[in-house]
Design a protein around this nucleic acid. Sequence first.
DNA 1: GCCGTTTGTAAGACGTTCCC
DNA 2: GGGAACGTCTTACAAACGGC
Length: 358
Amino acid sequence: MSMNQQNRHVLVANKVLIAMSGLTRWTKREEGFMYEQHHYNIPGPFLALKWTKSRIRHLLTLLSHCDDKGMLSLVESETLADHARTSVRSLHDNLRLFEEAGLIRYDFHFTGVLSIELVDYLSNYRDLTEESGSFASKTGYTSIWCGMIHHLMEIDHVNILRVALRALVQVERDIHVQSQEKAILTYDEVKGFLPRYCGHRLAVKGMLDQLSRLFDVQLVEDTKDFLSAVKDNISLKRRIHTVTRPLMFQMKIGEKVDSRRIREAERASTLIGWFDLREVARDFVDFDLLEVPQSSLKSLSDTYGFEACDEVLRSIRNDFLRYGERLQETDVYSLFFQSPVLYLNERLRRLSEKLAIA
DNA sequence: GCCGTTTGTAAGACGTTCCC
DNA sequence: GGGAACGTCTTACAAACGGC
């Protein structure tokens, strides 16, 4: 029924993750004050809402199912509620709330089936603004692997979920953007955005421990280690004001849920699959005339995954091996020779639909 | 949609422990 | 010894959700 597949890589603006995790009360920094709502330029609607467990889950669910325009067409509310592990009732409550806040617009086509539009998707949810033709992001966005999203939905304690969102942003900035070995969250930072009643050292430590399923978490308690880590890390030095406790958590993301690594590995394999096909096909046709840009192959790989791409590319290769140049005259392959990218997309779409039903 | 019950979340009070 | 950090308990109230 649903027109929307679940996205394999879920793209979320850092400012949205920060807003959902809760803004820090700890605003004083070495060179003055830092208010996250200004620093991240967080749109009003995100601040007006209180981000409870179910709301965080529901928004992540919408982002997991929307297309690159921020649309969800003809989705079943039960599918969305199941994905978020909540009742349909709560989903509907929150959708109404999101709409009142101006975050989304939605319409029921008939009972249980609706379409949703994320308002100002690019600027609100991806932090992308167009400047003279190209898109730029001010405070970045994070790519989350769908397996990681599933783990997030399993987290029972809202405050652990909040820490997880922060950890994702930190991994994106420290490891992926700044190429640091590890991402660092200090105890004071965690304490700052969590509600007061669970900001104690042991409680914070306990939460990070529970995240070790998703992240490779290392605790730094020794004052000497703490100070030397701060000395080596410029961005961290800027973040710290006064240290109440020399306590920090160094994190890496598990490889199996690292969206970037997965994407890069899959892209590379898909390209290799394409070149394998080319090797075979160019004995029979002028293959390079087809002009398939690598960027299209990469985006097909991102959308459908390597396994599906591999299956389709292999079957085309086998057909070439079997039928050779006669393939050009067949009806089923006419689209392939006219517009190979469209053809691949069509076959991949059908394949993944078949997999979804099975 | 509204209502009532159950469960979850937040915050303050207050006593204890830690550490200079 | 004294202040900051911490832990537990209590309370208030909001969210979640089923029934209608």
